[in-house]
């Protein structure tokens, strides 16, 4: 990407209208916003407490009373689905932040210090060789399953993706003539470089982070489904689907609705990521 000293965000006044021009970005933002609102306001919206048992009403199909039906303990699936959103979003967001912290640090270290670069680059390559779910469950197994370890594991799993971007950009900026000149004059260059690197990386990091958010939510659901993530009693979309597994064919609503929730959340994040990529830097666009 080109490196210029012009203000990073030109034409800011048009930003809102630019968002509106991109239908998919708009849809993504609206759906994501709706999911977030539902999750945050779950205590106000949910008609029942998520853990209220009612054995007489177990496995009721969707109806006016239980919009999404009830599960094997008679708990209201609609209420659980929106409460589960809290945790799924929390895990996704926290894992993304952690991945960003690790990834950006690693990338900067690799880019700034020639000596460290070889090792860091190789670690990044090697980390990418592990399929994400497999690496995540191994880390969870090593660290012991809990909400926190799931977040840590996913943060580690997705950090290399950001590290790669940051490293590549830092390496390019390091070779810019005026950085070289500054270095030759003995000016401590890392400060200048840091400013440059970060300014140029805001867009790609934001875009990549959106996708990592999406992958992390998918991965968390998989871990919970496999029973190696958060404890099965905690309602997340993954644990809800896992619980519904035994009732496939008899109480399909138990798996259907949490699944739709995941799809909507991940899809909206991908739409936002794609839209942001278009919006922030058309040059990054690879039609992917």
């Amino acid at each position: 990407m080109a490196v210029t000293s012009s203000p990073a965000i030109a034409g800011r006044p048009g930003l809102v209208s630019l968002v509106f021009q991109r239908k998919s970005l708009l849809i993504g933002l609206v759906v994501l916003g709706a999911i977030t609102v539902f999750a945050v306001l779950a205590p106000l919206i949910a008609p029942y407490a998520p853990n209220r048992l009612s054995v007489v009403n177990r496995l009721q199909p969707p109806s006016g009373r239980w919009w999404f039906g009830t599960d094997e303990f008679g708990r209201d699936i609609f209420s659980r689905t929106i409460y589960a959103g809290q945790l799924s979003l929390l895990v996704g967001a926290a894992a993304t932040l952690l991945a960003a912290a690790i990834g950006i640090t690693l990338g900067l270290v690799a880019g700034f210090f020639r000596k460290a670069d070889g090792i860091v680059a190789r670690i990044i390559d090697a980390m990418m060789a592990f399929p994400d779910i497999l690496l995540a469950i191994s880390l969870v197994a090593a660290l012991g399953p809990s909400l926190a370890t799931v977040i840590v594991a996913l943060g580690i799993v997705y950090a290399p993706r950001l590290a790669r971007i940051v490293r590549a950009s830092t390496l390019i900026i390091r070779e810019l003539p005026y950085i070289e000149a500054a270095r030759a004059l003995g000016v401590p260059t890392w400060r200048i470089m840091l400013r440059h690197v970060l300014r140029n990386l805001v867009s790609p990091i934001l875009v990549q982070a959106t996708f990592i958010f999406a992958y992390a939510m998918l991965a968390e659901a998989s871990l919970s489904f496999l029973g190696v993530g958060v404890s099965p009693e905690v309602p997340t979309w993954g644990t809800m689907i896992a619980a519904g597994r035994q009732y496939v064919g008899s109480a399909d609503w138990m798996t259907l609705f949490p699944g739709i929730a995941i799809v909507l959340a991940v899809l909206s994040l991908q739409l936002v990521g794609d839209g942001l990529r278009d919006l922030l830097d058309p040059r990054l666009r690879k039609d992917l």
């Binding site: 998918l218 659901a221 993954g238 597994r245 798996t255 699944g259 799809v263």
Partner: peptide, 11 residues
């Protein structure tokens, strides 16, 4: 790309 494989499998 947004569908969890385990969910699609169950369906």
């Amino acid at each position: 790309a947004s569908i969890p494989s385990f969910w699609l499998g169950l369906i």
